[in-house]
Design a protein around this nucleic acid. Structure first.
Lengths: 222, 222
DNA sequence: TATTGTTATTAGGTATACCTAACTATACCA
DNA sequence: TGGTATAGTTAGGTATACCTAATAACAATA
């Protein structure tokens, strides 16, 4: 029962890392949905992860990464995001395809290759979607950006990160030109869960809350 | 029973491709040795490969790649060698570590990434050990080089490829400076399976047959 | 407190891919 | 042709990691 972190185990750790980041309660069910598996499979794997001291689990409360688990997960996220940078910067793979390709690369990068890759890329701080690349020691840079969905009308800022990397979602945003480094201004926040009207590059767009939730903006003094 | 080429299956195809290249009879046992598995495991997998029409098998005669199998294997070798080029040229990973790292990368490279990678590397013809990178269509460039072990005394040439990529072997050769593009001259071929004395870079080295077998040289007019 | 809906687990099954040990088939030499 | 060494297969077992269906545990509310 040693430290045998297989690709399967890695998927769970990564999912937990992301779900914890959004401070959602990570119950068996949520984890199953995120990984597109059945709850029974998750129960089983969580047992294995617990035996390996990578997580702790209190039924009906949640699954939590241990220190060991978090470190392993951060390394994985680091490799994922470095892979995306490599695919984007060196191979010119399109924005919306980076995530899925990187999902495969992250499992085959050794410590040494990770170091060399980071160096070759100029030790980047973020992935092409603007999400921070954890440091080699597992620390993640604090982020002052906030989701578009929580901002008030008239506020302005610069898009810094997109936290949903599904191809269709990214294609949609790319079409509107809503990508990191683009300046946006909130025109109006419709009540009752209605759309958020933003102005970017001289045009106005009505975004659903689901969309706005995944666009992070660093506010600028207005 | 569809075309489900898993990493496990890929290892077998690649091994068969290499063993066929050396025109060795590829019996169950040889395959097992090459893959460091037990013969019983190979028997089982060969059955699966046969069902998928990737190989044909006649017991005590050999396992042979079908057209389908050979194409899949060539693609894999292509990805392996492109990975080695990437690791060497872009990340500066040392010569003797390339093979093992590439063994992992080859399984996660999609058609699209393969194309982009080849382009970014300038469509290289060989891996850093001098072995030909199969074309995207599966064809492999003919090679006029011959193994050092078959050459006669006094003949000269340029090293073009090293066909054993085990780290210790490559370290040994690197120490002697016997690498692709280096000129060598056969000084003497000791009889009864004795060593082959070669001159390279002004120094003389006595090489065992096992070693000389894996060093390919393109003879120059003497 | 009892009911109800949600969440989680257990039991039993599948597929891959490896293993050991026992057995069989073949090639080849004497 | 017969015997033996080599090669190969079968049978039964392990581990991972998924599944469905049935069951149990819990939270929250009536």
């Amino acid at each position: 029962m040693e430290t045998k972190i297989t690709a399967g185990v890695e998927e769970y750790l990564e999912a937990l890392f992301h779900l914890e980041e959004e401070n959602r309660a990570v119950q068996t069910k949520a984890l199953a949905e995120h990984l597109k598996l059945k709850p029974a499979s998750v129960t089983e794997m969580v047992k294995r992860l617990t035996a390996q001291k990578l997580v702790t689990h209190t039924p009906y409360k949640g699954v939590y990464l241990t220190e060991r688990g978090r470190t392993a997960a951060a390394a994985l996220v680091r490799r994922h995001r470095l892979s995306e940078r490599f695919l984007a910067d060196m191979l010119d793979v399109p924005w919306d395809e980076l995530h899925d390709e990187a999902c495969k690369f992250e499992h085959v990068i050794s410590d040494k290759v990770e170091r060399k890759l980071s160096e070759a890329l100029g030790n980047p701080a973020t992935c092409p979607h603007g999400n921070p690349i954890p440091e080699a020691d597992g620390t993640v840079a604090a982020d002052t950006a906030e989701p578009l969905v929580g901002m008030s009308a008239r506020s302005k800022g610069r898009i810094t990160r997109i936290t949903n990397e599904e191809p269709e979602f990214l294609q949609y945003l790319a079409n509107l030109g809503l990508m990191p480094d683009v300046m946006v201004e909130i025109e109006e926040v419709a009540p009752f869960g209605g759309p958020i009207i933003v102005k970017a590059r001289g045009a106005k767009y009505a975004l659903g809350r689901q969309v706005a939730q995944h666009i992070f903006v660093k506010p600028s003094a207005s």
